[in-house]
Computed example of a mutant assay.
Amino acid sequence: MAIRPVLRLGDPRLRQQAAAVPPGAFSSPEMEALVTDLRDTMAARDGAGLAAPQIGVALRVVIFGITHNRRYPEAPPIPETLLINPQITPLGEERGSGWEGCLSVPGLRGAVPRWSRIRYAGLDLAGAAVVREVEGFHARVVQHECDHLDGVLFPDRVEPRSALGFTEELVGAGVLPQAG
């Protein structure tokens, strides 16, 4: 449908709690248009995922998935997935740190600790359940996108605080792989 502008860090709408999508709205033309706009905007900006609040829609809707992504050249493929009203459950106590970036925080990357393995559950556009157990980069992307639904951006979670920098400088220092 349309490539939408992505809100950037500092826009107060990114810090709002998103509302649950009511059951009657799932297959509506408005919801279908939102999903199309999320998909198109994510693809146009080489994103691994995108949450509705990032385009100014305060609803609990995320989309994610990659085959190959120049921003994350070493990342394995993730099937494109739409989640409405998602929930995340950690599977175990293990957490791992990994470098993240965000379309709403362009040019910066930070090391963020996340659950290593999770179960996510939500609904698709038809209202059917989507449930998966995932690990690694897939789990990281889902947690990152779902954070947006609660007004949390990755710089809020960077540990240690010194592990935040501009992508160009981090690549130049050999901390991040060269984007391909």
Rank of each mutant, 00 (worst) to 15 (best):
C102S: 14
M31V: 10
A44W: 02
R71Q: 15
V6W: 07
E135W: 01
V152E: 01
T81G: 05
Y120W: 03
E30D: 14
N69C: 14
R8N: 11
F64Q: 03
G47F: 04
A163P: 00
L83H: 07
V61P: 04
P160D: 10
R132E: 15
L59W: 13
G107S: 03
P73D: 04
Q54Y: 03
S116Q: 14
I66R: 09
G110Q: 04
S28C: 04
D150H: 11
R161T: 14
A121D: 12
R4Q: 15
E74A: 15
E169F: 08
R161N: 10
F166T: 12
P76D: 15
G136K: 07
F137Y: 14
V21G: 06
L50V: 03
E159S: 06
P155F: 05
R157S: 04
P155Y: 07
V112C: 05
P77M: 09
E159L: 06
D37G: 09
P29F: 07
C102Y: 00
P73S: 05
Q54M: 02
G136Q: 13
P29C: 07
G172N: 14
A129L: 11
E94N: 12
V6E: 03
P22I: 10
I63F: 05
A19E: 15
G174L: 11
P5S: 12
Q16M: 13
T167V: 01
E169R: 14
R39Q: 13
L34P: 10
D150S: 05
E94L: 11
G101C: 06
R13M: 13
G98F: 10
E74I: 11
R157P: 00
G56A: 10
L7Q: 11
P79C: 10
L7T: 10
G47E: 02
P5W: 11
R132A: 15
F166L: 15
Q87F: 02
L170D: 00
M1W: 08
L149M: 06
E135C: 01
E30L: 09
R13Q: 15
P23R: 08
P53R: 01
R132P: 05
L176T: 01
F64L: 12
E94Y: 06
P22F: 09
R157F: 00
A179K: 06
V21C: 07
E145R: 01
Q17H: 11
R95Y: 03
V130G: 02
Y72E: 11
R13F: 08
T89D: 05
G174C: 12
E94K: 14
R117S: 08
H148T: 02
